[in-house]
Design a protein around this nucleic acid. Structure first.
Lengths: 334, 334
DNA sequence: CTGTTAGCGCTTTCAT
DNA sequence: ATGAAAGCGCTAACAG
């Protein structure tokens, strides 16, 4: 009986000698349809593998049950872990996930974001890579009625919701630990400019030093991991610890130390950030700051969905910010 | 002038004192609309950031311009690299990417796949994790008019298109290399049961031995990396090389060797598979088989889109299979 | 309790 | 060259 055409509501209606509205209501458990009709309809729908055309539904309801997620890349373990969590949560709530990456520059990033808006997703979770979001642009997206939530990175002067990891705390604890362990000449390999994560990790580093009356601060700005070996040279091995913006900077540091014959952790302690799987494979195994990817993923979805809900019912929603805490994973490099 | 409602065709039509049909045609470059009308319409559309409702379009055209991709997980570098390539190609062609993972078991996997069909994607690229696809199930999806292409793994008795990496060749070359280097007691750490990749890599291993008249074959089946250390023990270090199903098995092997005081590569050579980023961070650095993720990603998209096109125009399409070649990355472990 | 009807935003005959 | 009208599959007023 099942044809190789897609079954639609009217097929069921004809077969059951009912109107499409009754079938529709039965399928949606409308209270005024008697239970037996409902079950009868549902049975046939099931037998015929009927599934509603999401486009017809979406056209009417203005909801697409689709969330757009933009991350810098799929290969970075931190982001792919979060993406996994997000997908899990989304599926639970009956949403689909359209995902995309930032691309190679600010222009591509902006167009990727705009593509999500054009796809009429119900909401967006974005990790921006290249820029502060242009407020006008965010506004354009909001005008489409699409809540957008920023993940991992914070932007000043942007009205939006944020789900971030507590970079200040992560750095503060890491550096405090180094100090407790007796290190006193602590360098910081600072992350890319214009990233809030770089900013707060540096703040945490400086605060920890300050708190322990270590006034000598050397924060070495590295735009990418290639900068590390080049810039660290200038310090003539005159340090006993390095707190790195991320694990990849730390791997470079580890390699540099090996080349220089510097013994880690005896001569120099190293701490990374993000708990990349690689970090437990280096020798020595890297001490690193672990961010709660599950918190981050779960909260983004939770907050975004509630904004969507508010948007739908009240036409507006409140921005909020969630900051997830970190924990130091002490391994062999310090 | 722009309201915070979504602009629709009729808004443009009203403003320009034209009918929606004319506006629609103008936007779609219908030849019978004079150029100047077209540009006028396009200008306003652009100024007002008009973008067509994909759901209205999709409802009419039956095309959703969306491709569903299912992979085992986002964290595996091999798959996330392919996913990236796929997204790039898809964007170029104006498609969006809905992605999902296999989940924890065959039931979840099947429902994930079915969810893609329900989302009315135009086509599916899938890496199955748990099972041979049930032909009836594939058929159900085909009946929806959705071409489905299987990636990375091959299934006998399934009518479908495949894009796979040449596992036989990869293994054959790796093991041949080992033999050339003078190894003669070569073990194989075989992959999970029921995976074509396991099967062909084992075949390649055996063929290479056979070709060089090395008849002693020890293929040790390991369902997962935890099996490695347990099962390898039985061989009492009586081997001079190990060819591993994947890099993670190889890492276990490396660790085992370290624990046993076996020197790699002097006493035992090790080769992994997949060129995980980790593999160049171990010490010694792991020799591994590199699969062309770009070939794999590009071909899947190319083939799938042409099937979609054929499906649309002729109502049917031909299955085909693409096999991508591999290359051995010689590093320090052999 | 259920059917009729209109409409979501767009495309496309079919007229003119 | 352009407009009017119908229809894609679904839902929800509005009858009855």
């Amino acid at each position: 009986m099942k044809t190789n055409q897609r079954i639609k509501l009217s097929d069921l209606a004809t077969a059951l000698n009912l109107s499409t509205s009754t079938v529709s209501r039965a399928l949606n458990d409308h209270p005024r349809i008697p239970i037996e009709t409902r079950t009868k309809v549902k049975k046939l729908a099931n037998d015929w593998a009927y599934h509603p055309n999401p486009f017809a539904k979406g056209l009417f309801s203005k909801e697409t049950k689709t969330i757009g997620v933009m991350i810098p890349c799929f290969e970075d373990n931190y982001f792919s872990k979060i993406l996994g969590i997000i997908e899990d949560e989304l599926i639970k709530k009956g949403y689909k996930l359209i995902c995309t990456r930032s691309g190679k520059n600010a222009v591509e990033e902006q167009s990727a974001l705009w593509n999500l808006a054009k796809a009429h997703v119900d909401g967006i979770i974005a990790v921006l890579s290249y820029d502060q979001p242009c407020p006008a642009f965010i506004n354009d997206i909001n005008e489409e009625g699409i809540p957008i939530l920023f993940l991992d990175r914070m932007y000043e002067n942007v009205d939006a919701s944020f789900v971030i990891s507590d970079d200040f705390q992560g750095a503060f604890e890491a550096v405090s630990y180094l100090i407790q362990e007796g290190r006193s000449k602590i360098l910081h390999l600072e992350g890319p400019r214009d990233l809030s994560t770089s900013f707060y990790r540096k703040q945490g580093y400086m605060e920890a030093l300050k708190k322990h009356d270590l006034e000598i601060q050397h924060s070495i700005q590295c735009e990418n991991k290639e900068d590390v070996k080049i810039k660290i040279k200038a310090y003539n091995n005159d340090y006993d610890a390095v707190f790195c913006y991320n694990d990849f900077y730390a791997f470079e540091m580890l390699e540099y130390a090996k080349q220089q014959g510097i013994c880690i952790p005896n001569e120099v302690a190293v701490i990374g950030y993000a708990n990349d799987p690689l970090s437990s494979f280096t020798s020595p195994k890297l001490t690193t700051v672990d961010q709660s990817t599950s918190d981050l993923g779960e909260q983004s979805v939770k907050m975004l969905l509630s904004e969507i809900k508010a948007m739908k019912s009240k036409g507006s929603f409140e921005y909020s910010t969630f900051k997830s805490s970190t924990r130091l994973l002490v391994r062999e490099s310090c």
